[in-house]
């Protein structure tokens, strides 16, 4: 058995799974325009039924909901300036309302707003399966943690120049943060008490020639543990070991937010230039409010 172990181990280390774009993109399919005419689309989120949520941070006054068929309606009005959204395990919709300097959650149905933190300017957030909220505060270089009991603290400060997009690994043991002002996506270990430890510039983002500012923004994860980060040069995909898998061209400038939604969570939705686009993929997303699960293994690509 020892022999098999070593052969297997060597095969495993030498042939770490390659994850080219061809594992995700569908041949012959591209971005479809789903909605337009907004000032600044952002705050992409999804629910278990495949509905997609977004906002217009610049001109909008509420939260929009798009059905898998593409029908857009106002889900909750009267909440301007929301730049990050995600449902929690309590089915409430958590929102970054930077303009009002607060983190809130909205009760579906009644639309009631519960205020979680004030005096902060949250940019984007992630809620884990246990109800812990992490949000980025870009100008202060801070990543905040709000425990399920409401305890609020700064979980990290300093390493990330302009912390922006935020996501989790499928098993929720790793938290990642994109750096709008730098060229890395940072990874942290999530501790039992919710603390973030061992910051590491785990992924290196492609930047335009002549700058190290990636404009790294909205981030999400698929069921295979791949990370997707919007940036100046497009939507960048990384494998679970932090290696760049490729750059998916954005259909419009200023891609700022990304999410898997739609039927089976198989569609990548992208907010860019006041519009919403989507495209079908060979992958599928995960909902962080759902129980953590190990990342799936992709089918090996033929060599």
């Amino acid at each position: 058995m020892r022999r098999w172990f070593w052969i297997c181990w060597l095969a495993g280390t030498l042939g770490a799974q390659d994850m080219p774009l061809s594992q995700v993109l569908v041949e012959g399919e591209s971005w479809q325009l789903m909605a337009e005419g907004y000032g600044f689309t952002d705050a992409c989120a999804a629910d278990a039924e495949g509905n997609f949520y977004f906002t217009d941070v610049k001109n909008g006054t509420g939260i929009f909901k798009m059905t898998p068929e593409g029908q857009v309606s106002v889900w909750r009005d009267g909440l301007p300036g929301v730049s990050g959204l995600q449902f929690g395990p309590d089915r409430k919709l958590y929102a970054c309302q930077g303009k009002q300097e607060r983190l809130i959650r909205i009760v579906p149905g009644s639309g009631e707003v519960e205020v979680l933190v004030t005096g902060v300017r949250p940019n984007d957030l992630v809620v884990n399966a246990f109800g812990s909220v992490y949000f980025t505060e870009t100008k202060t270089r801070q990543i905040h943690h709000v425990a399920p009991d409401g305890t609020h603290r700064v979980a990290h400060q300093g390493d990330v120049i302009r912390p922006n997009g935020i996501a989790l690994s499928p098993d929720q043991g790793t938290l990642i943060v994109s750096d709008h002002g730098g060229k890395h996506v940072w990874a942290f270990r999530v501790e039992k008490d919710g603390a973030l430890s061992y910051p590491q510039p785990y992924m290196t983002v492609v930047t335009p020639a002549g700058t190290e500012e990636s404009k790294g923004d909205g981030s999400t994860t698929d069921a295979y543990g791949r990370y997707y980060v919007t940036s100046e040069v497009g939507l960048q995909m990384f494998d679970p070991t932090g290696r760049l898998g490729g750059v998916i061209a954005s259909p419009a400038p200023k891609a700022v937010s990304v999410e898997f939604a739609g039927p089976g969570l198989e569609w990548l939705y992208l907010a860019a230039d006041g519009k919403i686009f989507r495209r079908h993929t060979a992958s599928r997303g995960i909902l962080f409010q759902a129980p953590p699960a190990p990342a799936l293994s992709p089918v090996a690509t033929p060599r």
Binding site: S169, D171, G173, T174, A187, R189, V190, P292, P294
Partner: peptide
């Protein structure tokens, strides 16, 4: 990993 159910990075 912190949790047994999580994978080492």
């Amino acid at each position: 990993p912190v949790e047994e159910t999580s994978k080492a990075r």
